[in-house]
Design a protein around this nucleic acid. Sequence first.
DNA 1: TTTTATTGATTGAACGTTCAATAAAAAAAT
DNA 2: ATTTTTTTATTGAACGTTCAATCAATAAAA
Lengths: 201, 201
Amino acid sequence: MPKVGMEPIRRQQLIKATMAAIDEVGLADATVMRIARHAGVSAGIISHYFGGKDGLLEATMRQILSDLGTAVAARRRALADDSPRAHLGAIIDGNFDRSQVTGPVAKTWLAFWASSMHRPTLQRLQSVNDHRLYSNLCSQFRRLMPRQEARRAARGLAAMIDGLWLRGALTPEGLDADHARRLAHDYLDQLLAAHPSSPAS
Amino acid sequence: MPKVGMEPIRRQQLIKATMAAIDEVGLADATVMRIARHAGVSAGIISHYFGGKDGLLEATMRQILSDLGTAVAARRRALADDSPRAHLGAIIDGNFDRSQVTGPVAKTWLAFWASSMHRPTLQRLQSVNDHRLYSNLCSQFRRLMPRQEARRAARGLAAMIDGLWLRGALTPEGLDADHARRLAHDYLDQLLAAHPSSPAS
DNA sequence: TTTTATTGATTGAACGTTCAATAAAAAAAT
DNA sequence: ATTTTTTTATTGAACGTTCAATCAATAAAA
C-alpha cells in the first residue's frame, strides 16, 4: 500500500496507537512492537517517522496538550459574555472535555505526568502547559480580587481540576465528567461568592 | 558484617533505598542494582528478602500507605473536641504530613499511583487506601448534611487533597505543605459554611 | 563447626535500533 | 498503452544492550 504522503497519516496512527497501548498495559510495558501492532505496522517504522521511541512519546504528549489547549480556547471564544466567571467556567469545561476524557487519553496523560518528573523533555512540556492554566486562571481572578487572593484562588482551582481529573483516571469506571464539572463549578462559585462584583448565578 | 536478625534492618534499608532511587531517576530506571547501591548492599539480596523486585515495590507502597494512615490516625486521636470539623481538619493535616511530604516519598507515591493503573497488586492497595479516605470523609460530613450532599463534599475534598498533593509532587520546589493545608482548610470551611450546625471558626 | 547472611558472575529473556531487502506506487520512456 | 526506471514506504531479522533472577562460593557470627 505504500503511497506518497503517508507521513501525516502514519504519525497520527502511531500517536493514537501509543495511547491505546498505554491504556492497555501502561507506559512501562508499551513496547515499540506493541505500539506498532496496534497501528498495524512494523516496529521499524517508529524510528523512521519519530527518530525513536522517545520521539514518539514526546509527540504523543504534545498532541494531548495541544488538544487540551484547543478545547479550552474554543470554549472561551464561544463565550456570550466577557465576565470573569464565564471565562473561568469555560476553562473548567475545557479541561473536562480534554478531547475526550475517555480512558486512553486520561491514562496516557497520567502516565506522562508521572514520568515528566524525570524526563526533562516531558517536564518542559508539562511545565509550560501548567503555567498556561495557572496564568489564565490568575488573570481572570485578578479582575475580581487583589493579586494575593487571585493567586490563591488560581492555585486552589487548578488543584481542584487536577485532583478531580486524577481521581477520574484512577477509578476503573473512568471519569464522570459531568459530576467533576459540577464540583469544580461549585468550588468556583464559592471562590467568587466572597467577592463583590459577582452576581448570584 | 553478617549477623543474626538482619531481616528487619535490611528490609527497612531497602525500602528507603527504593524511595531514594525512585526520587533520583524515577520508577522506570530504578533498577535493582541502583536500589542495592543506595542501600550499600548487593543486588542479589533483594530477591532474598523480598522474593524479587516486585515484592520490594509492593512493600514500599505498603510502607507509604501505612505511614499515611498512621499520621492521620494519630491526629484524630489527639483531637480536643469531637466535632466533624475537627475530624475533617485532622484528616487534612494528616494527609499533608504524610510522614514527611518530602521529595522521595512524594515522588514515589506519584510513581506508584500511575503504575497502579496496570498492576493489580498495587491497584488493590491504592483502592483500599482511597476508599478509607473517602469513607472517613463521608462519615464526618454525614453528621452535618444529608447523604447525597455528604458524598459530594467528600468527593470534592478528596479531590482537593489529591490535587494539591499531586501539584506539589510535580513542582521542582516540592510541596509547600503549609500553603496546601491552608487551601484545603479554606475549602473545608466553605463546604461547611452552607450548613447549619457549623459554628463560625 | 554449624548456621546465617551476603556476594557477584552468570544466564536467559526482552528491548530499541539498525539496515539491507522488498514491494508498491509514481514518473519517465517507449 | 505498455514497459522501464525511479522514488517512496515498509518490513523484519540481526545486533548490542540492559535487566532481573539465580546460585555456587564466601565470609562472618554463633
